[in-house]
């Protein structure tokens, strides 16, 4: 039976650590889990393979109180605005999903497509790992598999401030910054931009229903032992500068 944990907010290190702590328990036979969360304070997460100095404007993050964390999943740099998105993590035995990772992205991202469609946004899955409307990105996801357990996490943009995002991230060519911001504004959208009448709460409900549809599930919460294990993982890994700046 799936455990579904409704949205709560945590700091960046704790959000990433909770994913690992739950993966450990699922590996030992605990129920698969879907959790929804937000980031408090706002944060930048970078993919496992990304170069820290290439991707993050550390000074801008520090002065704005934006945390920085390196994920265990690949993919790109993401700005997680505290109120601008909803993030999900799905943690399950990997045999539930296709062994081919590209195919499993389509299955799990399909829940996001369903949620957005249910609130009147004609989204579609765009390989490898995005959900788009009219070729404009509303959601991105990243997946890892470790010791038989799959973790896929991703964001669904409720509202986006592209200029704020780019103030915190580095661009490949500073001379191209303005052009890049304009280009990204054309290629990224948000639920609020598509329909200002949809509230963040309605988006959250739509996601909850779409991710639970067809599953046996129960509403749950973090166990005390998960929270304490996550605190330990946050301390030894995600809060460590060595981990964050390793590449």
């Amino acid at each position: 039976m799936w455990r579904i944990i409704p949205e709560k907010d945590f700091c960046a290190a704790m959000n990433m650590a909770l994913d690992e702590a739950i993966m450990e328990r699922v590996r030992l036979g605990a129920d698969p889990t879907i959790r929804f969360y937000s980031w408090n304070p706002s944060a930048v997460s970078i993919g496992y393979f990304q170069g820290y100095e290439n991707e993050v404007n550390e000074e801008a993050c520090r002065s704005s109180g934006t945390e920085i964390v390196r994920r265990i999943t690949g993919g790109g740099a993401v700005y997680h605005d505290r109120k601008g998105e909803i993030t999900y993590s799905l943690i399950a035995p990997e045999q539930i999903y296709p062994s081919e990772i590209a195919a499993s992205y389509e299955v799990i991202c399909g829940h996001i497509v369903e949620a957005l469609t249910s609130i009147g946004i004609a989204a579609r899955f765009s390989p490898i790992n995005d959900v788009v409307i009219n070729e404009r990105k509303l959601s991105g996801s990243a997946q890892t598999r470790k010791k038989g357990v799959l973790l896929q996490h991703g964001t669904i943009l409720y509202s986006v401030d592209v200029e704020k995002m780019f103030s915190l991230l580095r661009v490949p060519d500073e001379k191209m910054r303005d052009k890049l911001v304009k280009s990204v504004m054309k290629r990224v959208s948000s639920v609020k931009e598509q329909n200002p009448r949809i509230s963040r709460g309605e988006l959250g409900q739509a996601l909850f229903h779409a991710f639970t549809k067809g599953k046996k599930w129960r509403r749950g919460d973090y166990l005390p032992e998960e929270l304490s294990r996550a605190l330990e993982i946050a301390r030894i890994r995600y809060s460590e500068r060595g981990w964050t700046t390793q590449r």
């Binding site: 993919g47 496992y48 393979f49 990304q50 170069g51 290439n54 265990i72 999943t73 690949g74 993919g75 790109g76 740099a77 990772i101 490898i128 790992n129 990243a142 997946q143 890892t144 598999r145 470790k146 490949p172 590449r247």
Partner: peptide, 30 residues
């Protein structure tokens, strides 16, 4: 149609001493 790749290489005596590959790709296992 894919992701961004960056390579940082150190060349010594006509050979690659070390190389680092970064980017927003995915590799399993990481």
């Amino acid at each position: 149609g894919g992701k961004m790749l960056r390579a940082k290489v150190c060349v010594e005596d006509g050979k690659i001493k070390d190389a680092m590959i970064t980017g927003d790709f995915f590799l399993h296992p990481e």
